[in-house]
Design a protein around this nucleic acid. Sequence first.
DNA 1: GTGGTCTAGACCACT
DNA 2: GTGGTCTAGACCACG
Lengths: 125, 125, 125, 125
Amino acid sequence: MTWKITGDGPVYLRLIGIIRRNILSGAYQPGQRIPSVRDLAAEAQVNPNTMQRALTELEREGILVSQGTMGRLVTDDRAVLEQIRNRELSLLAQECMDKFKGLGLNPQQAGALLQRLGEREEGNE
Amino acid sequence: MTWKITGDGPVYLRLIGIIRRNILSGAYQPGQRIPSVRDLAAEAQVNPNTMQRALTELEREGILVSQGTMGRLVTDDRAVLEQIRNRELSLLAQECMDKFKGLGLNPQQAGALLQRLGEREEGNE
Amino acid sequence: MTWKITGDGPVYLRLIGIIRRNILSGAYQPGQRIPSVRDLAAEAQVNPNTMQRALTELEREGILVSQGTMGRLVTDDRAVLEQIRNRELSLLAQECMDKFKGLGLNPQQAGALLQRLGEREEGNE
Amino acid sequence: MTWKITGDGPVYLRLIGIIRRNILSGAYQPGQRIPSVRDLAAEAQVNPNTMQRALTELEREGILVSQGTMGRLVTDDRAVLEQIRNRELSLLAQECMDKFKGLGLNPQQAGALLQRLGEREEGNE
DNA sequence: GTGGTCTAGACCACT
DNA sequence: GTGGTCTAGACCACG
């Protein structure tokens, strides 16, 4: 896992984003145990308190579940994962679309552009 | 013009991106005179030298033209603008697609998602 | 390397000319590492920033390549070197010819004059 | 007459060069009266003493002749003019050749290059 | 006023 | 140590 804590804004928010994305992308599988707060903090070169806060928020979100003294697991509730994934997709889509609009494209054109990207890749394979 | 110089990377590169986007989006019209180096630097709260560097690079790119002591203009060469716009679109599309792939979508699905965004907006109108 | 930064015009442009000529003349061999920015600046008695600018331009020109933290090398692409050499030859020829014309010589006569210079040298050998 | 006193070295030496070249190029005809020291100094934006020194040197060279209180004339001795012109040509040829050598050309090649320049111009006419 | 250049000195990331 | 970036402040040429 890469821990480029670049950009601005509170560090713990960026940690949340990074961990969430890594779960949704499958880097951490549903039901899998994640490293300890201390280890994660060391890996990300961040204060353990900051990492703790990020994990607590992700717990409240339901994507992580605490096992008391046994550490934390990624939820195995596929419905929760799917819901969070859809929310992230929606945010990402809106974010991208805003940028495309800034260059004068409407959703139809932007969507077509992405799909043309796919055709090009197929051609390269 | 908004000057959020957030994120990481050299400031002058982000200035270039911001100004270029503002030109491509039409905030600065082709042939229009842009503010002086010092004014832009004050507006963006950066050192005039840094702004100067950004503008010099944009000049080399051809999207800006210097009029010596008469200030700088946005080029009125539509072909240059269109070419740069296409390059930016290509980069943006690839960038977005990378993020969508991280969430498990292929270009077809991502494109469809953006277009569904458009239909939703039409419904709201 | 001699660093006579005499004459007029921006210093960084004259630095570019001096360094380029020294590369083309073989004082810096293709693929060879050149001194650090700071060393060159000290040698030429200019500000490191000014020297940095000159080197950056030469990099953009392709005659120098940066190795990140490993310093800069003269390109080992002979084609690039040959192309730049031809361009310099063309400029130099035109520049000389302008001066000869000021003294009433046409290209034929000027060329013959230079070649007679060669014959005289042969005679001295 | 243009008075770009650029470059380095004593001003009066550059004045000498400029005036001599203007005479040899025919801007000042043999036997013609040249402007007064005061006028020339004003034109060149130079201290009259400096201009005086330049003219005195040119007089010693024989290319200018003083008429006492009647001002100065360009010599009408074609032999003197021709001799000085040859000396200047010789210096210029050597100077150019040094630069060509720096780029790896011998006199034969340099001469051929200049003559090719002439052919190209003929083609454009 | 405009753009452009130069210096001085600092900081950062990389290795 | 290396290249690279940024700031601060000054000076110049051009109209």
